[in-house]
Simulated scan of single mutants.
Amino acid sequence: MRQNWCRSAARGTPEETAAAPDGVGSDCSNPRSAVGPPAGNLLLHPGGGRSLLARRRALAVAAALVAIAAAVGVYTLLTGAYELSVADALRVLAGEGDRVDRFIVLGQRLPRVVAAVLIGAMLAVSGALFQSLSRNPLGSPDIVGFTTGATTGGLLVILVSAASSTATIALGTTVGGFVTAAVVVVVAMRRGGAGENLVLAGVALSQTLSAVNDYLLSRATIQQAEVARAWQYGSLNAITWAQVRPLAVAAVVLLPFAIWLGRPAAVLEMGDDAAASLGLGVGRLRAAMVGYGVVLAAVCVSVAGPIGFLALAAPQLAQRLARTAGLTLGVSAAMGAALLVVADLLAQRLLAPFQIPVGLLAAACGGLYLMWMLGLRRTVR
């Protein structure tokens, strides 16, 4: 099977597209089994006798998006109410500089930029997996209710627990996300498990959970409601290294699993029968994708609150730019990082000195994106 795939990939057949998300294709342990990479592709050799097929355009788009995220991040570090020169910022990063410069760069701006990059990447990967699983561009965790369920779990911790922390909120959001996912999947499977059923069940449950969230806030004290409401809007305004460090650990642990899930998930897009005929355990793979996507979204919600739009739009925009037929996990992650860094910069500066919660700005952009997508679909038809 592996040798046949390598040969088909060398000829640029449809199997290459199905098994090569982001242009990362066959795990050709025997390089001699492949005739050579097709046009527009690169054959990478990461070591250990393994070879990966990469699409040139996908790599170029991902590199451009990373460069945009880095440039906007640097601009965010240097500008604002307190201006810094490049030399001042470099001195701070080298462990020097005066106390005010260190506080501005290390205490306020840098953790915010790092959090935006990590959260954007993780939400985008989560959205790409759920869209692939549902075979529907609306199948992102914020649309199908998983993010709302995670928010419910986080609110219960904040409003009920006497001592809420990042760890306990993360536990609450993860449990809430998993319970919501289980209910949505069960309801969708009773209707046949099609992608539209998953989306409809998720939207229905999301509305119910939104009412539950509003009820929880109405029963809270004024102080609790203020804290919970600020978190529920989705914001990076008060982010600190105490929240960024566990987020970074989670990203380092979780994001590499996207490489492991990418190829079989892309094969699953060909259909359950085709995936099963290729030896994939369809049920186990679906469960792994749901669990992985929920954990990614829940970790992000626990740190910054629910931030919509990214998981919905980033995979679609990445797929259009990279011009791939299936999953684009790597490009989606880069797109999500770039989008959230830009959105957070706008949230800081549009109404300066007042700062908009980035979740509100993202929700507004999400509405515009949905209208654009509906108009585009009507034009195509």
Rank of each mutant, 00 (worst) to 15 (best):
Q243K: 05
V35T: 15
S302D: 04
L278I: 02
D142F: 07
S210N: 09
G95Y: 05
S8P: 00
P256D: 05
I239Q: 04
L84Q: 05
Q207A: 14
S126V: 00
L255E: 01
R135F: 12
V341Y: 03
T166V: 13
A314H: 01
S164Y: 13
V179K: 00
V66G: 09
L43P: 05
G176N: 06
L360Q: 02
M1K: 13
L255T: 04
Q232C: 06
L44C: 09
A297F: 00
M122G: 01
A69W: 04
R7N: 06
A116T: 09
V249P: 09
E196M: 14
W5M: 09
V125R: 00
N30C: 12
G367L: 10
M335C: 08
Q108I: 15
A60C: 11
G172S: 03
A18I: 07
G40V: 08
D98F: 10
A181E: 06
L310Q: 02
G293E: 00
L217F: 08
T13Q: 14
L254V: 00
R377S: 12
Y82K: 12
T79D: 10
L156W: 03
A167L: 14
V199S: 05
M373C: 02
L216R: 06
T240P: 01
A116K: 03
A181N: 04
S161D: 11
L53R: 12
L198I: 12
L376A: 14
L171E: 10
G120T: 07
V301H: 01
A115Q: 03
F354E: 14
N30F: 14
V331Q: 02
L280I: 15
G367I: 09
R190E: 05
V113S: 04
N197A: 15
A337R: 03
L205P: 08
A58H: 03
V303P: 00
A228G: 07
V244T: 09
S164V: 12
R55S: 13
L209K: 08
L312N: 04
F103H: 15
S33G: 11
A287K: 05
V184G: 01
V252Q: 03
L198T: 12
G193V: 09
I307S: 07
G330W: 12
V72A: 08
V24C: 10
V125D: 00
A18R: 09
Q207C: 11
R229W: 11
L370S: 07
I119R: 00
F257T: 03
A334P: 00
G375E: 13
A211F: 09
I169V: 15
N213D: 13
V160G: 11
M371E: 01
I104Q: 07
E96K: 11
S235I: 06
G25E: 07
S165E: 08
